[in-house]
Every structure is written in C-alpha cells, then in structure tokens.
Write a protein that binds this DNA or RNA. Structure first.
Lengths: 234, 234
DNA sequence: AAAGGTTTGTAAAAGAATTGTCAGGCGAAC
DNA sequence: GTTCGCCTGACAATTCTTTTACAAACCTTT
C-alpha cells in the first residue's frame, strides 16, 4: 500500500508541484489549503507524514503542530518555512515538528528528508516492516513460519518466503479458520488501491502451498472456497 | 516503574519543552540547570539515561561526561550540541557520551535516539546486548571479526574493516538470523537523520561480503531479502 | 448425468522493481 | 597534495510480481 502524505499549503503553484513530485515518487497524496482545516484533514486522511507550510490562512503551521501534538497525534511533520522565519522554534521542542526545509527548496532535498522522516518513524520504505511484537513464529500443519527470518520450516526442509508470501500468510494466520474473500485478501496484502484483474493471488497461493507442503492432490491447509476465496486451517 | 531520565540543561525554554515531551512519553524526569550540580544529581536521581547539554554554567557537558565515566558510572548519555560544536570528540572515545543530537532537533529524532540508547543498555525493551561484550570478537562463517582491532580474519587472510563496515556487522551480529529492513539498518548504522541514498548500504554489503569470503555466486552469510533488506546467517 | 459457463490451478513468459557492481567524486585526515 | 573512507550515479544482473494461456475443477442448468 502506498504511503500517504498530506500537504498543507495555500500557494496553488507550490501545492501542485509538490503533489506531482510526490505522486511520481509513488506516494499517495492529499492536500489542504487552509490552516484551520488541516487538523480535520489529518484525522480524515490519516497520512504517514505531513508537509506543512508555516504561513497559512486560518491557522499557522505552528498552531497546527501544537494542536496535533496536544491531541497525541505523532505523525511526522516536515515544515516548509520561508527564509528568515524562526526555524529554531519550529523544529524545537514546543512545537513538535520533526524537520524543516527552507523555501525555495530543492526537490531532491525535500524527497530525501521525507524519506528520512518516514524511515525514522518506521512507516517508510516499502513492504513488511512488521512490528516487533507480532513477529512470533506460528505453525501451519507441519510447517513453522518465522516472520523474523522469513523462513518456513518443515522438518529439515527450509524455504525462504518473499515479502508478499509472508504478508499473505500472516493475514491468514490472524484470521485462521475464517473464510477470506479474494477482495479481502487483495486489500490486506496488496492495499486498497490495487487494480489487478488478475490471477496474482492464486499465484502466491500456489507458491505458499508448495512451501507449506500442501501441494499435491487436495490441500489440507490453504483451502479453496470456490467463488469466494480461501481459508486457512492450521 | 517508569524509566528515569535526567535532563541537564540551562536554557529554561528547552528544558521545559524537553520535560513536557518526555513526560508525555511516559518517562519520569528530573532536571538540573548547572553543570557543577549534574554529577550530584545523577547520584541522587539514579537515572537510566542522561540528556546533557554541552554548554552549561559551572561545568561543561564534556567535563560531566568524563567525571561520570571516571567514577565508573555507565549511564547512557545523550549529548545536546549546537551546530558546529566538536561532536566527534563528544562521542569519541575519551569522553564516553553514547550519542548526540544537534540543535535544533526534532522531537521525533530525540525520542528515537533515547529509545535506541535505552534499548541498547537493556533498560528499554527487547534485547540486551550489554556494552561490555560489545567488543568481543565473534565469528561469521569462517571469518572472525575483532571489533577492537577492526579486523576480520579468515585463516591467514586478514582484512581491515572501516568504521561503517564494522558497525554494520555488529548490528547484524546482535540480530543474527533476523531479517533487518534497509530502514532499520540505515537507522542503526547511519543514524536517524541520514539523508543519503539507499545505494550506500549495498555498497557496504558488497565490501563486507568480500571481506567475509562471501562474495562469489550466492552469498551464504549476508543474505539478500528482496524488497526488504538483509539477514545474517552465521 | 451431461453440457455449458465460471472459477481455479499451474507453468511459463513478460514486465517491474530491486539489488550488485563499478567507476568516479567529494571531503576529511595525513 | 595525496590518501582513504564514504557516497553517488549508471548500468547490468537478479529477483519478484504480474500477466498470459490453457487445462482442470467446480457449479448450475438442462
């Protein structure tokens, strides 16, 4: 699923430019051009990062920072400041912004800083950053899956899992026994904006069955529910 | 019991901000605004971590570091430095600070570093790597890595490691077997405000594979997890 | 139960994306 | 100025993902 970035900026010129750049980098963007709408926009869009201009109609970037932090929202904030604005305070402690760039800024620098912030907050990168706590190994039939090592073991046979395969297995595991529709699975693993009219899911299922030793004749663990989806039986 | 953090900082503005942020994160804080009172404050409060400004009335942060370490106090120290101050020496060997952030700093970066330090010292969370054993030699396959000499030996072949290479190896070693995302590795080795490209990491991996004798065909020790990161198999 | 239309299984090809590697460049230390 | 570690850009190589294609399985309707 794409990483979501909210841009709060009133200058339409800059806003459009930013959106274009970020989208071309594979981010999902939303925008807001008034300060007093920003907090609501954050609540609605739930971005992984906020690019926030300081000078805004309605409420200043400073205010928005404070409000968000007061509400225990810890979304990383990258401030856009004009030269000469008081950046020390911006990035300083009261306000809770995480970084800033000074206008006019280079696209390259902006992207680098966005990446750095996302990396820091653990939302960055691409796939399966996976939280530490939910990484306990689990069993499916004879096979043991260890998310920390991306491995599945059956006796002495050890197979490596790809990111997608692991993700899918984890989804199955957290809903063990339930029938999961293809849509549901696609949404969970591929994200809510995946437009594949394809057999991609089946493909991964095949691979998983092989690695789970569930391949020949009739599967015992990854069961097909014809016309609906699949379900996992441990 | 809450983790205790002592803040040594004379600027009331920053001090208050710090206290607020740390308390809202669930830490127990105490503070001290004079350098010459800091050592006593440490003895009294017995914090799990010290946030220490460099510029202080009474005694500098450098001095305090030295004094504490001389007294065999190994409480993790996070230094606050202004831009341009000599940070190399701070974190370097003599002084014994464990990490630093440069003012102005983002809240998130500060918290990330505090958590990292606490984690490292075993007071924070999961793994306890203990600073004592950090310098002990360890093996990866046929190769023996000696952190004290920055050398890796395979039979009669001896290679020198650079700082980055060693650091990366140590991170791998403390999480041996686990898949480490590129983000994680960049954070651990390059720090929380590194804006470089991710190509850099590959580069170091290449060098390490060569020095570990893991170079041709398919690597046996530093394994690539496509789309995620790497993992070390001893 | 057979026919017909769908849905799924599977292998192989095509397409994307990520990583490996090399060569060059920059800056700090010597 | 030279050396050394470190970072970057470019391109090749690799790997994963998606698509394609067709056979097999399934369900529904005769």
């Amino acid at each position: 699923m794409k990483t979501k970035i909210l841009i709060v900026e009133d200058d339409p010129h800059i806003l459009l430019g930013l959106e274009e750049v970020l989208k071309s980098e594979g981010y999902d963007t939303a925008s807001c051009n008034r300060g007093d709408e920003a907090v609501a926009a954050v609540a609605k869009f739930q971005p992984s990062l906020i690019v926030l201009d300081v000078m805004l109609p309605g409420a200043s970037g400073y205010d928005i920072c404070k409000q968000l932090r007061t509400r225990k929202n810890s979304t990383p904030i990258l401030m856009l400041t004009a030269k000469g604005q008081e950046i020390d305070k911006v990035v300083g402690l009261d306000l809770g912004a995480d970084d800033y760039v000074t206008k006019p800024f280079g696209v390259r620098e902006l992207l680098a800083r966005i990446q750095a912030l996302l990396r820091r907050s653990g939302n960055g990168g691409s796939v399966a950053s996976s939280s530490v706590s939910a990484d306990k190994p689990f069993k499916i039939g004879e096979a043991t899956i260890d998310p920390k090592t991306f491995q599945v073991k059956r006796g002495k046979v050890v197979d490596e899992l790809t990111a997608k395969e692991l993700k899918l297995l984890q989804v199955f595991h957290t809903h063990a026994g339930d029938v999961l529709s293809r849509d549901k699975l696609l949404n969970e693993v591929w994200g809510y904006n995946y437009y594949g009219t394809t057999r991609t899911l089946d493909q991964v299922i095949v691979q998983l069955r092989k690695k789970l030793g569930d391949h020949g004749g009739d599967p015992k663990h990854l069961l097909t529910i014809h016309g609906v989806g699949y379900k996992l039986v441990s």
